[in-house]
Amino acid sequence: MAGDSVSRGHTPAPTGEKLDAPRILCLHGGGVTGEIFRMQARSLIRDLPDFRLVFADGPFFCDAGPGIVPVFQDFGPFRRWLRWLPEHPEIDDDAAIEEVMYSINTAKKEDQGTGPWVGLMGFSQGAKLSASLLYDQQIRMEKEGKADTDYKFAVLLAGRSPLVSFCEYSKSPACVSAGAISEGFHYEGESPHVLRLPTLHVHGLNDGGLHLHRKMLKQYHDPKTSTVIEWDGTHRVPIKKVDVEPIVEWIYKTAGEQGVKV
């Protein structure tokens, strides 16, 4: 079955002509690819000309995600970052972290841009991953005074609870481990792991997972540094101007507040 192997595949081309523009790392959902996410995010790309968006490919092969076929059936093999189905092969946490970070670092290394990596943008499983990577940066800074990244913000398009643990500091009943199945994870009560770096939560009001997106926001994000945009959509990336404009405005505003030069 497709889920039995790890991919060392081609990383899709970035967007944005300016090589020195600040860069946003873009992480696709489960059962798609970086190239598909680039097409799904075409309206956001168009309205973010001062940023360079770089789309990474997840490390693991899997079957197509919900709603991907037939529109994108010729764009496989499809990929994932995390396990969400029992048939996804078991993997230990350290190996899962290594594969995810290898894929991300490969995308960064292969990009010809020279601008700083200032943000993350993810859809669905990629949003969960984006929040988790931003939190990992935060907790490493808190515990060690240093981190390998300096992301200023994350845009979470339909990101489900919970956060994923990427180091020993976040190993907790409140976080799912990197090698575990993330769907069906339940943690009730107040999480000791709260992300305080700026995040934008984009929630489709007709999305079947909306309650899990709201749970992610409520349990794992500081209300002082999180912003919510609700739109009249299902589980997909917004493409209409009326839905995209508030997202773009938040990115420009937050980047400026965080000292990003655009």
Score class of each variant (00 low, 15 high):
H235N: 07
M39I: 14
A13K: 11
R46W: 09
V248S: 14
I68C: 00
T106G: 00
H28I: 09
G9L: 07
D150C: 14
L134Q: 07
T33K: 00
Q138F: 05
G58A: 12
E190R: 12
R79T: 04
V6R: 15
K224W: 00
G259H: 11
K109G: 03
R140T: 06
A154I: 04
D93M: 06
M216P: 04
A56K: 06
K261N: 12
F55G: 05
R83C: 09
G34F: 10
Q258N: 10
P49L: 09
V244W: 05
L200K: 08
V176D: 01
K218D: 11
M121I: 12
P173M: 08
P238D: 01
P86I: 01
I239K: 15
S170D: 12
V242D: 15
D150S: 13
T199H: 02
K152P: 02
E17R: 15
N105I: 03
H213T: 06
R23E: 10
I251G: 08
I229V: 15
R236E: 06
E257G: 15
S5P: 00
A2D: 07
H186P: 00
L48P: 07
A174M: 10
T149F: 08
G76D: 03
L19Y: 04
Y187Q: 08
A178K: 10
I139R: 08
Q138A: 04
F123S: 04
I139V: 15
H235T: 13
V228I: 15
P70I: 01
C167R: 06
K109I: 02
N105K: 12
W84K: 07
A154Y: 02
D232S: 14
E188H: 10
G159T: 07
V164R: 00
A64E: 00
E190N: 08
R236Y: 07
Q219W: 03
E249I: 09
C175A: 12
